[in-house]
Design a protein around this nucleic acid. Structure first.
Lengths: 252, 252
DNA sequence: ACCGTCGCTTGATCTGGATCAAGCGAAGAT
DNA sequence: ATCTTCGCTTGATCCAGATCAAGCGACGGT
């Protein structure tokens, strides 16, 4: 599109080839030529700001979205008028996969902080996957990974107590940030306590109390949105559920 | 494989083309020629019996499995030694999608009653999807549908109370059985109360009490595994959560 | 600089559903 | 035919976390 020499204002539009996320994102493991072809269908919009929507539930499904910088939350309306936060999405993560089937978005995606987003028109993407087997495989893996993640969340919501849930949440965030070259132990939360609680199936008050408790126990420092994990090992053992000896789980 | 005229013992091995599930299963919407090609890679094993495993968590991922008749449950181990039931699978439903990414099964699949299962070696399936765009699309939809279903479960586990969960479970079962040509209001449960409770994040006792209550309220008849839904409309309104006026949900 | 709102914390109380406990009937084992 | 086990039900009690209530400090707007 831009055949000008002007690249200053185009700096936002980093090609996949030069994007630091290429190892986490769709291009992962693709041949350079194929990355190039993928790159051609990616739309890169101007940065979005806190509160902007990528799409709303009920919208026609047209594109997948990939977070380039910033963060996004997805949430589904519940029949009673409330909502369930389904996920917080970091750079390299793909959003909208659940809409391929019904062709209608069943959830909304809202930007949590100023973020750059790549848009992949799905019809064009499907044309590519049909001719690039490794990209097809990548898409299958991506979809499968999402299922695996949901499965983890089902286990979390179905079997874990408040303490285990929050510890798991913090560690998941920590790991994902670390993969993106950020500190695993010192980071800022882009979402509110309310959103964390909603995501984890807990009341805000419970989340707040647990932050306080974890801090008192020397597991972490909390200052507003600023988090420092002090004892990752202990947090991990909390998730394991060995915290207190809970009754042997039902074997159905 | 069988070029004999003997078809009696081969009757189990119904080709996709003749299978009554073709409209629900992978072949859905495929051209007859393509169904034929798909059919060639399907392995049809002898019937499995209650308690048999399709695969166990930790197993290498090789194939997807489709229920032809009977039912299957999938469940994941939790670190404490318990397990979380992830789903109950009816004819036409595909199992194992979560393992494509990691190449290792993270959950186990166990047959709940005598069942016929089709096995689809994934490598061969991927070769097909690469040459049959409509099959590729079908696979994307299938994976996406699974994500959508998981999303529904997250909402259920995160926001709904015991009553709403059980009502939702019964209605989901009812709808799915109906799609398969069975009665929507009169059916047998192939899973135990324990398994239902585990799936819904509830104790067995709670499930049992709710069955009793629903029966007392004239919503259904329960006799052991035999279920008759008497007031589907009321069950639906229970799921909506309008049962009692619960506090307006958090908007995060 | 001031104000109003909002997000967060902390304390007190309440409750849905878990846990504990006991018994019963059906299905499979010997 | 009898025993044993297992799945289910029902009652009593308990508790993690929700809900209710109150205050506080940060931040955006004017």
């Amino acid at each position: 599109m831009s055949h000008h020499k002007v690249i200053s204002l185009e700096s936002i539009r980093i090609a996949c080839r030069n994007c630091s996320l290429s190892s986490l994102c769709l291009p992962m493991g693709l041949a350079p030529d194929d990355v190039e072809r993928l790159d051609e269908i990616v739309k890169r919009t101007r940065p979005l700001h806190r509160g902007d929507f990528l799409f709303r539930d009920g919208d026609r499904f047209r594109s997948l979205y990939v977070v380039k910088t910033g963060s996004v939350k997805t949430f589904a309306p519940s029949p009673e008028g409330g909502e369930q936060v389904l996920g917080f999405h970091l750079p390299g993560e793909v959003i909208g996969l659940d809409a391929i089937d019904k062709d209608i978005h069943a959830c909304s995606a809202k930007v949590l902080e100023t973020s750059a987003i790549c848009e992949l028109p799905f019809t064009r993407l499907e044309e590519l996957t049909a001719t690039i087997p490794s990209l097809q495989h990548q898409m299958f893996r991506l979809l499968s990974k999402e299922i695996g993640h949901d499965t983890d969340m089902l286990l979390l919501l179905g079997k874990k107590n408040a303490e285990e849930r929050l510890a798991a949440f913090l560690l998941s965030l920590s790991k994902r940030l670390h993969k993106r070259g950020l500190s695993a132990t010192d980071f800022y939360l882009s979402m509110s306590r309310h959103e964390i609680g909603n995501y984890l199936g807990l009341a805000v008050e419970t989340v707040s109390r647990l932050f306080t408790r974890f801090q008192d126990d020397g597991l972490m420092n909390v200052d507003r949105k600023h988090i420092q994990l002090l004892d990752v090992g202990m947090l991990e053992s909390l998730v394991g559920g060995a915290g207190q000896n809970r009754r042997q789980q039902q074997q159905s």
